[in-house]
Simulated scan of single mutants.
Amino acid sequence: MSNFNFRTFFNILISILPTGIVFILTENVIWLEYTLISCSLYVVFHKYHWSVTKIILQWILILSLFSVIYFLSILPIYFALFTSFLAAISIGLSEFNQNLRTLSSFIIIPTFYCAFSFSEYTHSSQILTEFYKIILFSPCSLIGMFLILTVNGVIPFQKKRIDLSLDFSKNKEPFLIIFTSIFVAIMLGNYFIFKYNLPGGQWVLWSIVSVANNNVTDTKAKLMHRVHGVFLGSVIGFILCLIAMYFVVNIPILGYVIALLTPATLLIKPYVLAFTSRCLFITLSGYLIDHSFFKSFERISDVLLGGILGLIITIIVYYIYSFFKKKTIIS
């Protein structure tokens, strides 16, 4: 992904514009969750220079997986198994082609995030009724991409295609390590989410997917990036909220705008700055919309839980594989 610039930011604004319009018309904050799908489509489109057909296919895949997870939310054990396998196989396959990591992440993350968010807003007795509404408004997450192509034209994005083919001749060990690590970690993450009814459970799974890697060093580094980001972003956001309270600043619409723009932080480089900005935006929007500081504390605890689970499981799995590998060599 190229460095963040004004043109990229402009395109992001275009991509989330339809979602913003839907929110204004319905006055329902839940539709802002679709901005993550819009931004994910743009990130993948920008990186891989995809055709319109592939953009639509990615969108359909996200919605399809989201639909399955959404309905499985009332069946915790099946939900846990499906999300664990889906994340593990998606991220694991990227070990056979590193170019796939971005694509895998930006299919899994919006799928998990939206499924959790929508299911939290829905009572189990209304799951089918609400699903119809969700599908009805879902095109707003795709229309923005067509607006981008309309405004910019297709030609600026016609660059060399990136190879996404899988090379199964590569060493299988990294795949086995990351597949096992993510599967076990997400199973445990789901256990804590459902056992203790954790709000914002999508952040736990997001952290696991982001942190887990095929080696301990990279996993530790990614965890530290997220820890620094969540604490720094939340603390700065908390301080700004206190300042806003002191000056009696009450501008809910500003909170909605910040919430709308939050997924755009996915495009910021480096990663620690992007994550810091994301946590800052979430803290600010939470206060401005409903005068709540809880989102920042939830964010911290969920990021820590997911990150620590990802690290611990990766360490255990890595050393188990290393042990058996050495044992095999010796024998």
Rank of each mutant, 00 (worst) to 15 (best):
I268H: 07
F157M: 09
I178Y: 03
V43N: 10
I308P: 09
H291D: 13
F79I: 02
T217E: 04
V151S: 08
I143G: 05
I282Y: 10
T111K: 12
E27H: 13
F71E: 09
I148K: 06
A274C: 02
V317T: 10
A259T: 11
I162Q: 06
Y78P: 05
Y113N: 01
G306E: 12
D302Y: 12
K195I: 00
K327A: 09
K326R: 11
I127M: 10
V248N: 15
K133N: 07
T83G: 00
F192H: 15
V209G: 06
G306N: 12
N214S: 04
K222I: 12
H123M: 01
I24E: 13
I320K: 05
W59L: 13
I162G: 07
L260E: 07
H49M: 04
K54P: 00
A185P: 03
F146E: 06
F175P: 14
T102R: 00
V44W: 08
N11R: 04
V44N: 09
S51Y: 04
I109V: 11
F168N: 13
F247Q: 03
K326T: 10
L232V: 02
Y70V: 07
I208N: 11
F175Q: 14
M245P: 08
I282S: 13
N5K: 01
F112G: 11
C39L: 15
V227K: 12
L41C: 13
S51I: 05
V68P: 05
T122F: 14
L166N: 04
Q98L: 15
P156E: 10
F10S: 07
D167A: 06
K54L: 02
